[in-house]
């Protein structure tokens, strides 16, 4: 009796959940990747090399972080294509 209504509703909400899950975290993942890269670079500069290399590892870390951010975007796209 209720199955028809239920399947229709659950299909719609399932699609909604999928969209939210797939795209809802894009912004946060991108930012998190950049910050982790930057933090790693700053850590290398200040703690490991004692300020001798100061701007360089920060920049390298930032570049890697940005690259990682774009890579995670690319992964999300790839995942979406597969479905």
């Amino acid at each position: 009796m209720g199955t028809k209504v239920e399947t229709k509703m659950s299909k719609m909400s399932r699609e909604m959940i999928h969209l939210l899950g797939n795209y809802g975290h894009i912004g946060f993942t991108f930012v998190a990747a950049i910050f982790i890269g930057l933090a790693g670079g700053i850590y290398l500069d200040q703690k490991v090399f004692d300020d001798r290399t100061t701007p360089w590892f920060t920049f390298i870390g930032l570049a890697f972080g940005i690259a990682a951010g774009f890579k995670s975007l690319f992964d999300i796209l790839k995942q979406q294509e597969k479905d």
Binding site: H25, F28, T29, V31, A32, A33, F35, I36, G37, G40, F64, G65, A67, A68, G69, K71, S72, D75
Partner: peptide, 18 residues
């Protein structure tokens, strides 16, 4: 390797902070 590691650790950060 660094890119993959960073994006893997980003999961840790983004999942908890969101």
């Amino acid at each position: 390797l660094p890119i993959e590691l960073i994006s893997n650790f980003a999961r840790l950060l983004s999942l908890s902070i969101r």
